[in-house]
């Protein structure tokens, strides 16, 4: 059987061309191995061969991303690669970002496995760990001898189409993806065992490390309420009676946008909830208790607020992935801005 084909990407420094003064060189390709590729080739030689090495200056790549990507992509294609390796970049920031960018692009467009290697604090690691398997390395090229075997191990697994193990086992930076599997013992037994270890002061491994939630700075206050256009948004699943767009009762894949221009309040004939996570009786009888259209109309008539926006946006927050609700909000926020909405009241159940 012929060996699998690997294309290797490195920067001007590892390519032996030069340091910072050569960081602006354009991508060039050499047959076979260059620099760190030598050690990598040694480690994977039973399975694969590095057929070409692409060298590109870090500054050039980052200042001409689109052009660099296009040229490099062509080079990888030409060599008919089965696997693309970028780096390792250790703690070199621009090199790391370049490795991540090109590896992600190759994976997406050429649909072949890719691999890189970086120090966890390399900005490229944070930017691309979700899409690219990045082997965790030390912070300088002095750690090359440790990085290569780990990269080779994962490279061989990928080339053979073997299942990739956990980040700890295969030494890559966690991609933040939760995957189910059946354990040997049931959860209750694992809970008891974990407690025994915790009580004894021995080591235990949590099955779910607590996340850090990101934050956004508060916007300045509204200056003029009486001229403000205010929109209502809810995660309480209020929809027109009959749920015309069939928003899911849990784990929603979509949101709804509905016209309330003609409504002075919501009632059991007009609106209901699609949300499956709470007792729906109240919202089905009087949806104002989730989406306060009646009160907003009063405020509008009294001149306390300028206007109630004619559309409300809604989804079910129940079991809906944070990433989905984030995407919904990104999308409809653009519409709200375009419609000149000054502020939003978001209600949750």
């Amino acid at each position: 059987m012929s060996k699998k084909r690997v294309v290797h990407y490195i920067n001007q420094f590892f390519g032996g061309i030069g340091g910072e003064e050569k960081a602006d060189i354009k991508p060039e390709v050499r047959e076979g191995v260059v620099g760190p590729g030598m050690a990598l080739q040694g480690a994977i030689k039973e399975e694969a061969e590095i057929v070409a090495t692409i060298i590109c200056g870090d500054s050039y790549f980052n200042e001409n991303v689109d052009e660099a990507k296009k040229v490099i992509m062509e080079m990888v294609k030409k060599y008919d690669a089965d696997l693309f390796v970028a780096g390792p970049a250790f703690n070199a920031g621009r090199y790391g970002v370049a490795c991540g960018t090109i590896a992600e692009a190759v994976k997406k467009e050429l649909k072949i496995p890719v691999i890189s290697g970086m120090y966890p604090e390399n900005p490229g690691a944070d930017m691309f760990k979700k899409s690219v398997h990045i082997i965790e390395t030390g912070n300088s090229a002095a750690q090359m001898r440790k990085a290569i075997p780990a990269m080779a191990n994962l490279a061989i697994k990928m080339l053979k189409g073997e299942e990739i193990s956990s980040p700890a086992e295969d030494k890559y930076i966690s991609m933040g993806v939760r995957k189910n599997y059946f354990h040997e013992t049931r959860g209750s037994q694992r809970a008891v065992d974990m407690l025994m270890n915790k009580l004894a002061g021995e080591e235990f491994v949590t099955e779910f490390p607590m996340p850090n939630f990101d934050r956004v700075d508060p916007l300045p206050a509204l200056k003029d309420l009486s001229n403000a256009k205010i929109a209502l948004v809810t995660s309480g699943g209020i929809v027109p009676k009959g749920n015309p767009d069939r928003i899911e009762s849990s784990s929603a894949s979509k949101y709804g946008k509905y016209d309330i221009a003609d409504f002075f309040n919501l009632d059991e004939m007009s609106h209901e909830t699609a949300h499956g996570g709470y007792d729906p009786i109240y919202a089905n009888t009087d949806a104002d208790c989730v989406l306060p259209v009646d009160v907003m109309r009063d405020l509008e008539n009294e001149g306390k607020i300028g206007k109630l926006h004619r559309y409300f946006y809604t989804t079910t927050g129940n079991g809906t992935a944070v990433a989905s609700s984030k995407a919904f909000a990104e999308e409809f926020s653009k519409e709200l801005l375009a419609d000149g909405v000054d502020a939003v009241i978001l209600t949750s159940t």
Binding site: D214, L336, L337, V344, I345, S348
Partner: peptide, 29 residues
């Protein structure tokens, strides 16, 4: 959702029962 609306540049207030969740996910008002 609340954070994305704010991030988009629209001031937002979150009316919710489970205030601790709102605090954890990062609503400001």
């Amino acid at each position: 959702m609340v954070k994305e609306i704010e991030r988009a540049g629209i001031p937002v207030v979150h009316i919710c029962t489970v205030v601790p969740i709102s605090l954890t996910v990062g609503a400001n008002r």
